[in-house]
Design a protein around this nucleic acid. Structure first.
Lengths: 363, 363
DNA sequence: GTGAAAGCGCTAACAT
DNA sequence: ATGTTAGCGCTTTCAC
């Protein structure tokens, strides 16, 4: 007798303040006079429930202001609808653009991004990875700090779809979206050698960062080519981070190299910007006394004083492709790991132009 | 009899592949031969459990590779350890810096940031707010798109600690961290009027964005002051977004205003950058033919060609303070809503310098 | 088409 | 000091 058509749910608990009480599916069910299962069906299988019931439930949802809990959903279904994005520094326009690319494709699928800046700290990366794993992110987009990918491979092995951002996987089996940094470094250095510079400096980030190591390798390659014609020097100045501040700091070291280089290439545009600032202050004319080449071709590179020669990378596309690889891996039944590699492109501007100062031209 | 000192847990389910099976507290308990509660205590109340037991559990955690589930934790405890960050555009350096400020203080407290770019779309903001509410974020930092804050006030009323970023709450009871934008607009316009310009344009974002409206109001205020001495014109050119592209687009409208303004102030540095680009291409000399003033004083403003006069905002501090207000609100028992307001600062550079072209000086 | 009930992984109150 | 147990809010069988 007690088991009639109408469920005999207890009324929702009252007494708590509206700020502290969260509406659950149970209250909706009570109000609509249906069972929990039916409310759930309205939410997830709308087709299966009769129209009048559906309406009642929808009204009850509206009236109570019910908002489903992802946590509870996740506990049952195993999907958190979040993607972890771990990068060196979100305030670096290169990474920010990449994030936009990724967000653009993931947003529409209902994912939300957990964005984590590591500042090139291995410890911070480790901690963030831990937290992201605790959150059971449905995917991970990461520009790793460490050369050694074992932590990341561990996560991937545990079933977290993972795509390396701007970093390839080496022998590890991982998806990646990259730009050919060796080629990029070669383009930058080759350009300077071709302009006639035979003593150039490379203000680079820590070689533990793969991008930095690769770009240096490319520069060395360009040098080898140049050396067939004439003797050249390529010296590396290492800084701790790919930031404006570190670029500014590097100028001291740059100017005290002997013999002083006539050109400098930088690991990214932020460093180049810092260098440009300090060179200007020091009265060193660019490009006459010192040619400068950056990397990334960020939005403002063309409007710097002087306009900065740089190596363009498809930032937005990189993020978008990475996100697509991630979805492929997360949803595709039998996924094959894929690596997408873009080609960088040299953009020549005035900061490396042939000297225009009368009598100071180099060729 | 069955209730001895050792728990009689069933063995963990086997059979699933390592990629799909997640280790739970239960398996750890089984391996360490303790109860679920003890494992939980090791995790949350380490002091209360005996050292040898603790060791056994810790070893079991290590051996199984157990990682606790935030979702399950959240379901019990009600804390998600996430903070939603909703802003107009993460690739805008102004917002990126703010996020860094917030991340800096929240990271150490174990929070992870869900970063959402709305691109000034009300619809997108609405959807993101919904998703963040479903995730039960422990807090919300937001630069709202809409003038009307009712959606946000609703969230706050439901108990989500909320801090407005770079936007004050009006009559609503909300925390906020802001910069005085009216004052900023007044500084920028006042500077141009003082330089002798009496026909200036303001390339502004949609007036629905509070910052844009305020800066315009400040400009109008400066104009009122200038008018006491002489007649002046202030015309507004509206663009859809605070981006480089929109700045570029605005140049057409700017140059076809009659009589053509001798100076332009911009709603932010990205717009100013776009304008600078196109003016240069069009052969319009800055500042001789057109003075340009930006807003935000982003890192590269001083190195543009010409160096850009701008209004400096304490970006990092803004984010950091907002995060601290959030923590205060989330943790403090009887929290009073607070608003922190910073003062903007005019940074004069060459883009607005008095004309240096002989015979073209304006005063 | 709808209801009842089990259980996702964890914590906390209580029992021993 | 450790074990047992009842849920947190939801989805998903399986009955009816």
């Amino acid at each position: 007798m007690a088991t009639s058509g109408r469920p005999q749910l207890p009324p929702p608990q009252a007494g708590l303040t509206s700020a502290n009480r969260r509406v659950t599916i149970r209250e909706v069910a009570y109000l609509a006079q249906v069972s929990l299962g039916t409310v759930s069906n309205v939410l997830n299988n709308p087709g299966v429930v009769a129209e009048p019931t559906r309406r009642r439930v929808l009204d009850a949802i509206e009236e109570t202001g019910f908002v489903r809990s992802t946590a509870a959903h996740q506990l049952r279904v195993g999907k958190s609808r979040t993607v972890g994005v771990v990068l060196l520094d979100i305030s670096n326009p290169f990474f920010a653009e990449m994030v936009r690319g990724a967000e653009g494709v993931l947003r529409d699928k209902g994912y939300v991004l957990m964005v984590c800046s590591t500042d090139e700290s291995v410890e911070r990366e480790r901690r963030y990875l831990r937290v992201l794993e605790e959150h059971r992110v449905d995917g991970l987009l990461i520009t790793p700090v460490e050369h050694d990918l074992c932590e990341i491979a561990r996560l991937a092995a545990r079933g977290v779809p993972t795509v390396l951002l701007d970093r390839d996987s080496g022998e590890r089996e991982l998806c990646s979206a990259t730009v050919d940094d060796v080629r990029g470094g070669e383009l930058a250095a080759g350009h300077l050698f071709e302009l006639g510079h035979d003593n150039i400096a490379f203000v680079n980030g820590p070689s533990s960062i793969r991008q930095c190591a690769d770009r240096h390798e490319g520069a060395v390659r360009a040098q080898r080519r140049a050396r067939r014609r004439r003797p050249t020097t390529l010296r590396e100045i290492m800084v701790n981070a790919l930031s404006v501040e570190q670029g500014e700091k590097a100028v001291g070291a740059l100017l005290s190299l002997t013999p002083r280089p006539s050109a400098v290439m930088c690991a990214n545009d932020l460093i180049a910007l810092g260098i440009l600032k300090r060179l200007t202050e020091a009265g060193v004319a660019v490009p006459q006394d010192m040619a400068v080449v950056g990397y990334d071709d960020v939005s403002f590179a063309s409007m710097l004083s002087p306009p900065l020669t740089s190596v363009r990378q498809p930032k937005y596309e990189l993020g978008a492709i990475a996100a697509e690889l991630l979805l492929e891996e997360a949803l595709g039944a039998n996924h094959k790991h894929r690596s997408v590699r873009f080609e960088p492109e040299l953009v020549v501007r005035a900061s490396s132009g042939p000297s225009v100062r009368p009598g100071a031209s180099r060729r």
